[in-house]
Amino acid sequence: MAAIALRLSRPRPGVTAAALFLALLAVAVAAPGLLAGADPLAADPLRALEPPGPGHWLGTDHLGRDVLARVVHGARHSLTIGVLATALAVACGLVLGLAAGLSHRWVDEALARSFDVLGTLPELLLALLVVAITGPGTGSVVLAIGIAQIPHFARLVRAQTFVVRRAGYVEQAVTFGFSRAAITFRHVLPNVLGPLPVLATIALGSAVIAASGLSFLGMGPQPPAPEWGAMLSEARNYMRVAWWEALAPGAAVTLTVVCLTVTGRHLQHRFEGRTP
């Protein structure tokens, strides 16, 4: 694991490898059948807990399902949750951050304090609060992680808005007598967006970790759905006899997040004008 990370943390080849792996993941999400022919839900009790070998390249789980097929199909579950949660956080963070940055000092102060409070609670705890209200399931996990990540984006957009609203072109627009809405959407918004993709890439990584954690606790997609965290939770009971059942989804989560982090940091360096 460390060897892979070491390779990935070097600038050029590492970033390329990360991008390739992310492309592979995209294929797994869009057309999982291309990477694994077996049915991820087809149980075969006679072939349960078979070690990796021909026929089942990553072995079979306790119900005789193909682990490779489950990991590949699991990409869709895990990444969908991550992407939707991050999208929710970006959208809400953008609206709230802009509102704070452009409003009267008092509104700004109130919003900034509420970001602080939201940022104060550990992400997982906030997620548990949401799941306690809405019950387990994919939607709850998306909502939970999305809400927990709003403060990161809202703070960034607010800070960015402060910079942009003092810029010469905004003052010009005000002088020309454009309406508030026109200035907001035509001049402020596009210039605030800049650093968001970078933060979103890194946030996507932590959303995938959080999603697998919540699913591991049984709050996410319910069995037999092949979500990585849920697979780990099931595999935990068979670790003594079948390490591959836990290793495969664990490695999938880790590799995904390593690649997202590497790509995100690379983008960050490029965005900030430093060479990585």
Binding site: L8, G250, V257
Partner: peptide, 28 residues
Amino acid sequence: RAASAAELVSVSVPPFVIGILLLTVFSF
């Protein structure tokens, strides 16, 4: 490089995966 690789892995591995690995090696 070793330290920054360790950092990259630490932010990328869910803590319960580390726990499962530790359990597999040291308990089982």
